[in-house]
Write a protein that binds this DNA or RNA. Structure first.
Length: 644
DNA sequence: CGCACGTTTGCGTGGCACTA
DNA sequence: TAGTGCCACGCAAACGTGCG
């Protein structure tokens, strides 16, 4: 005898409600025109724009597939029905109810995949879902994801419960709340967290190598390398997030005061994340010259592309290449077009083919077709972003960063973060810049740096007050770190400690030491701590200025600076001072000649050089003074012809 | 005003597409 | 046909905000 189990009324309702829900989803206009039954929704339209990130210009997709991983993973089957249809309807209705960024929908899909994984026994029927199934999905998320992601997944599972209840899709009303705890961020101080932080820092070998590579680059360096190297230098100077840097305007420099003045500042405008808020990153004094060089080089190397982008903006529908201007219907020989594109016939044909430009006659290209195709792949900047494309600093040609392909004339592309990543991190089959220039870790392994590392590094330096020691020694002061000096590889704070110790033991002479002696013993330590709280090594001595409090008041002119300490008879420092004196004297001779000729500003220039000369002579006099023991730290105090 | 919350963002990864 | 730059998606967490 056959037993026929009739569905209960509640079950019939649930099934009917699911059908109605899916029908509603099918009818929805959310996401624009998509094939509802396709496993992948291509070119999803969203009413909420994504923030401009340099590489984020293409169409968006939603994958209704099992399994995770980047595109192309082999085990990606479609989500089983009827869950599949339910999810599609769910995404459309939630987008309709409240527009979201594409990532938000993808997180929802991720939560659904966890649910899918435990629904085989239910034949993937959402009507049969019970609280324990959500528990199982949540457990799966906790097991597979990090705490913060698992928490987010739990939240989306709870949202699914809400939709099921609201539309009567479940056979019973499901009572389920997200039980996955949100991780607290107390973790910052744990040892694990500290280790994670140091893992993110650039290695000492990387920090040593970068200034050297920067110096090795010259006029013969490929633009692709120079642009990327200067970009990395900017990361060192400012610690931006990579996309904040790559979206700076070409007109980004901000200066306050005059170069040489005490309150001179140099900054770079950029758009902070979230809301595109404009902001200025003020560059630490010792790095201003590095930043200026980087900006000037990048601007120069990207100028052509920017001009093309501007032309396109100002002449809608027209292409800037002369060969593409004129009668749109004119047929041009492939060979002639190739010559204009500075390439060969076959590659020219390839450029057309890629852009689906058909050749109407054998070996001939219709001018208008190619112009249209090239204009169509110019990146589109979201209207909400405060810059037009031609105002971007980082503009290049298609394939400009390609080692083996030629840059395609007449194209406009943005520099994307992966290009910088390949440059400093490398990838399978891609040598990074450290490899190419022959630098490696002390143990011979590969140096790799991640773009965010510089941000961590600058933050850490700022916290430890060691900014000046590191930055100046590497980028602005001495050309090479002297491996033998006792003060190398110590933090600014340690160096200051050393100097204070020298004062206390009588090993330092000069103004600070004199003042200290006039104080009651109980106040001496506190006085020294305020006077010399940090330090860094310069070409000709030790600087006691705290760069955290104020930029360099004399702009690196250490010889005339009252905060400078001489290490008596240190051979390197003495040689550097003598070399500087030589240069100053020859510059002074020129300056004096120009002052006589009446060149504008020359008298001031002469005065500056005279002051520097006097300072250097005093420094050398200290090194020569037989009354001072070698190794004594000598603090010269205020000096200079104007009595500063 | 402080904390918890929801959401947007950056960064990592892997492979397709396209040039030479 | 070989090789890799460029691109898209997933993951984790940093971010701004809103609530108590």
């Amino acid at each position: 005898m056959n037993v026929i189990i009739l569905p209960s009324a509640r079950e019939r309702d649930a099934d009917a409600n699911l059908s109605a829900f899916v029908a509603k989803g099918r009818a929805s206009k959310a996401f624009g025109v998509v094939d509802f039954d396709a496993d992948v929704w291509c070119d999803v339209q969203l009413s909420k724009a994504k923030r401009i990130t340099a590489g984020n210009t293409g169409p968006k997709q939603l994958h209704f597939l099992v399994g995770t991983g980047a595109r192309g993973a082999e085990d990606k089957g479609a989500l089983a029905k009827p869950l599949n249809d339910f999810v599609k309807a769910l995404l459309r209705l939630r987008e309709e109810a409240r527009p979201q960024h594409i990532e938000n929908h993808r997180v929802m899909l991720r939560a659904v995949r966890h649910l899918h994984a435990i629904m085989e026994e239910l034949n993937y029927d959402p009507c049969r879902l019970l609280p324990r199934h959500f528990d199982a999905a949540a457990r799966r998320a906790v097991a597979m994801e990090t705490p913060s992601t698992a928490y987010a997944t739990g939240k989306f599972l709870a949202e699914i419960v809400g939709w099921i209840n609201q539309h009567g899709v479940g056979r019973i009303r499901i009572e389920w709340r997200n039980v996955i705890p949100r991780p607290s961020n107390d973790d910052r101080i744990s040892e694990d967290a500290a280790k994670r932080r140091t893992d993110k820092m650039p290695s000492p070998a990387a920090l040593e190598a970068l200034p050297k590579i920067a110096q090795l680059m010259n006029s013969t360096t490929l633009p692709a390398d120079l642009i990327r190297m200067r970009t990395v230098e900017l990361l060192v100077c400012g610690g931006w997030r990579i996309n904040e840097l790559l979206t700076i305007p070409a007109d980004c420099e901000v200066e306050e005061g005059n170069v040489g003045d005490e309150d001179y500042r140099y900054g770079i405008r950029y758009f902070a994340e979230k809301g595109y808020g404009p902001d200025i990153k003020w560059i630490s004094t010792p790095l201003i010259s590095v930043a200026k060089r980087a900006i000037s080089d990048i601007r120069r190397l990207t100028q052509d592309v920017r001009e093309d982008a501007k032309f396109i903006f100002e002449n809608p529908g027209k292409h800037p290449m002369p060969v593409l201007q004129g009668d749109a219907d004119e047929l041009i020989q492939v060979a002639d077009m190739a010559a204009a594109f500075n390439t060969t016939g076959p590659i020219m044909t390839g450029i057309c083919k890629t852009r689906q430009v058909n050749l109407p006659a054998r070996g001939k290209i219709r001018r208008g077709d190619l112009a249209c195709a090239l204009l169509a792949d110019v990146p589109v900047v979201p209207a909400a972003f405060p810059l037009k494309l031609h105002q971007f600093m980082f503009l290049i040609r298609e394939n400009e960063m390609h080692a083996r392909r030629g840059a395609v004339p007449g194209t406009v592309r943005t520099v994307v973060w992966e290009m910088i990543s390949d440059f400093i991190t490398g990838a399978e089959g891609v040598q990074n810049v450290f490899q190419r220039y022959g630098f490696s870790e002390p143990d011979g392994t590969l140096i790799t740096v991640k773009s965010h590392a510089f941000r961590h590094w600058l933050n850490t330096l700022a916290q430890e007050g060691g900014m000046s020691q590191e930055l100046i020694a590497r980028w602005s002061g001495r050309k090479d770190m002297n491996q033998n000096s006792f003060y190398d590889h110590v933090s600014g704070a340690d160096l200051a400690k050393k100097v204070r110790g020298m004062i206390e033991s009588g090993g330092l002479i000069g103004q600070v030491a004199k003042v200290r002696e006039t104080l009651p013993p109980i106040e001496r330590d506190a006085f020294l701590a305020t006077q010399i709280s940090t330090g860094h090594v310069t070409d000709i001595g030790i600087c006691a200025h705290d760069w955290q409090l104020a930029p360099c008041p004399v702009h690196g002119d250490c010889a005339t600076c009252g905060e400078h300490i001489i290490d008596k008879n240190n051979a390197d420092q003495r040689a550097a001072a003598e070399r500087q004196l030589e240069q100053v004297e020859s510059m002074l001779a020129i300056a004096e000649a120009e002052a006589v000729d009446g060149t504008l500003g020359a008298p001031r220039w002469v005065e500056a050089h005279r002051r520097k000369r006097i300072g250097l002579l005093e420094v050398i006099a200290v090194h020569n003074d037989i009354a001072i023991a070698d190794g004594t730290f000598v603090h010269l105090g205020s000096k200079g012809s104007d009595g500063r």
